[in-house]
């Protein structure tokens, strides 16, 4: 049941409170509002306001979207060991996984494009706010998956950022984007 050409399935997964559902909404807005493409975003989370597993799927297509969830994601962002264990196997063969190298230690086969980056560490130590790790991760994933343009993503990030935090979030996006490109150019497994 291969997805048809032009359908892009992205899954962001981690723990509740890491802001991944919000990151998914931002990506959906970048694709839908700023690029005018058909998009669907769904989420699965638990009853807790923090903790527990949390994930969001974003489907971007050229045509109207029938099934709104990912069946075999083309790109996966994982921010917890548990999320990797649950969803690592769902990745499309040859798909991309970006993971937080400080939180997740995956073993991946040669057919997977796995990129480990210090997402939370960069958010905490370089940007001074661990809370923007979701935007760092989103920037890194989108830079490599080429899901939307950097301009569209930045516009969507700024639109959703709480007032006064627009610059911080834009810096977080840039940090993730650059980190991903540097890591893949510097000889991390392509």
């Amino acid at each position: 049941m291969a997805a048809h050409d032009g359908r892009l399935e992205i899954r962001l997964a981690g723990n509740g409170g890491q802001g991944l559902v919000l990151a998914g909404i931002i990506l959906a807005e970048a694709a839908g509002l700023f690029e005018g493409r058909p998009v669907a975003q769904t989420q699965v989370y638990g009853p807790e306001s923090r903790g527990g597993a949390s994930r969001t799927d974003i489907i971007i297509d050229r045509v109207a979207i029938d099934y709104p969830k990912a069946t075999a994601p083309d790109a996966l962002l994982v921010m917890s060991e548990d999320a990797w264990k649950r969803f690592g196997g769902s990745l499309r063969r040859g798909g991309l996984v970006v993971y937080d190298a400080g939180l997740v230690h995956p073993q991946t086969g040669a057919e997977t494009r796995a990129v480990g980056l210090p997402l939370t560490a960069v958010a905490r130590d370089t940007l001074g706010r661990a809370i923007v790790a979701n935007v760092v991760g989103l920037g890194a994933l989108v830079a490599l998956a080429r899901a939307v343009s950097r301009e569209a993503l930045e516009a969507a990030v700024r639109r959703r950022a709480p007032q006064g935090s627009e610059e911080l979030n834009a810096r977080a996006l840039a940090a993730g984007w650059d980190l991903a490109l540097e890591a893949t150019h510097a000889g991390a497994r392509p």
């Binding site: 959906a28 669907a40 975003q41």
Partner: peptide, 8 residues
């Protein structure tokens, strides 16, 4: 699913 889904 329908209630929390976002779509264009």
């Amino acid at each position: 699913v329908v209630a929390h889904m976002r779509e264009m």
